[in-house]
């Protein structure tokens, strides 16, 4: 029973504090909210700025996935590599080499051309 008293007291204290903060804001604040235009150095927007991404970011996403996959497979590999021996090291580096080929291909296709 006493645990519940503590919980209710804490909830009550929290509620009172929140109410007090809101009351303070209500009493001292300016009514209404302010919505302002985007800052266009004195101009007005002609179109909504919601826009589609350039396709090159999708290529960057793919490259990120290649690096990400390397990392994911290296975590379990790091646990067993000592007991598996040379074979595990060779296999992992073959796998890394394959993924690196993908990265090199993306590089040749201009995925890292930022501007």
């Amino acid at each position: 029973m006493e645990t519940f008293v503590a919980v209710v007291a804490l909830a009550g204290l929290g509620g009172a504090l929140i109410t007090a903060v809101y009351a303070l804001s209500f009493l001292t604040g300016v009514r209404g909210t302010l919505g302002v235009a985007p800052f266009l150095s004195g101009g007005v927007p002609r179109e909504h700025a919601l826009s589609r991404f350039h396709v090159r970011w999708y290529a960057v996403t793919m490259v990120f996935l290649a690096f990400d996959m390397e990392m994911i497979f290296m975590y379990p590999w790091a646990l067993v590599v000592a007991s598996m021996g040379t074979m595990a090291v060779v296999e992992m580096f073959l796998f890394l080499g394959l993924l690196l080929l993908g990265v090199l291909y993306a590089w040749r296709e201009g995925a890292f051309r930022w501007a």
């Binding site: 266009l40 101009g43 002609r46 179109e47 909504h48 700025a49 919601l50 589609r52 350039h54």
Partner: peptide, 21 residues
């Protein structure tokens, strides 16, 4: 506000054109 119109970019892809002062 109207949505941006699209036009070919330098790679020949259709992309939004924004007019900014």
């Amino acid at each position: 506000l109207a949505m941006a119109e699209r036009a070919d970019d330098r790679d020949g892809l259709k992309l939004d054109v924004l007019h900014l002062p």
